[in-house]
Design a protein around this nucleic acid. Structure first.
Lengths: 103, 103
DNA sequence: GGTTTACTATCGGATACCCGATACGGGTGG
DNA sequence: CCACCCGTATCGGGTATCCGATAGTAAACC
């Protein structure tokens, strides 16, 4: 038993959520995850996820002119987020307290 | 992009949580997940997880005499659950609303 | 006793996830 | 102009995860 709580399978979901708050670049996302998790995910982890979300038309590029490429949710992406969140909550439905307590 | 929200990596965590509520058997767990998720995980999914948790001494068998083998959390398992839950909440820290709203 | 049923358990294989290394490209500063 | 940084991007590989199939086992019922 290594660690009983890595990100497998939920990274895509997490990225979708992060971008829904405000447009973010790949680097932004890596930093935010580092803040939350303690370790910074590899570029080879984040960019393929971004690519997949883009190909699925869940996110779109926002060129801010600079070298950083920000992404924002599309309409399709917003719908997907709602669906995915619903599934997520259904799966961990008994965790309200764990979230609300620490606040 | 298949499904952006499977259980990879969190199944162990989920099982630990389920067992923490009340002692459960492998079959109990499969049924509860079916209730939450809609699809019933394969035996080959659940039992190895149980085996791993047992080998890590996070859970212990409770022989109720019958053929069903219930599992309960050990002290070590309870500590692990606290730690894992903390990590989980840190990762999805902005989801309080999604949990509390639907209630 | 023998058959059926339900749960436990394991094994092989496929998958997709994530990482590390590496390359590319555009600003920036000397 | 050139060297350096920093963010983007891809590729190959290792690995944990999950599934389907199959076998084992023990109670339950006739």
């Amino acid at each position: 038993m290594k660690t009983c709580c890595d990100m497998r399978g939920y990274l895509t979901f997490l990225v979708l959520r992060l971008i829904s708050k405000k447009p973010m670049s790949g680097e932004d996302i890596r930093q935010e995850i580092e803040r939350r998790k303690g370790t910074k995910p590899s570029p080879g982890t984040v960019y393929p996820v971004l690519k997949g979300l883009h190909e699925s038309e869940f996110i779109r590029e926002i060129s801010d002119g600079g070298k950083e490429k920000k992404y924002a949710l599309t309409q399709k992406g917003k719908k997907e987020l709602v669906v995915a969140t619903k599934k997520f909550v259904a799966m961990f439905c008994d965790m309200q307290d764990d979230f609300t307590k620490r606040r």
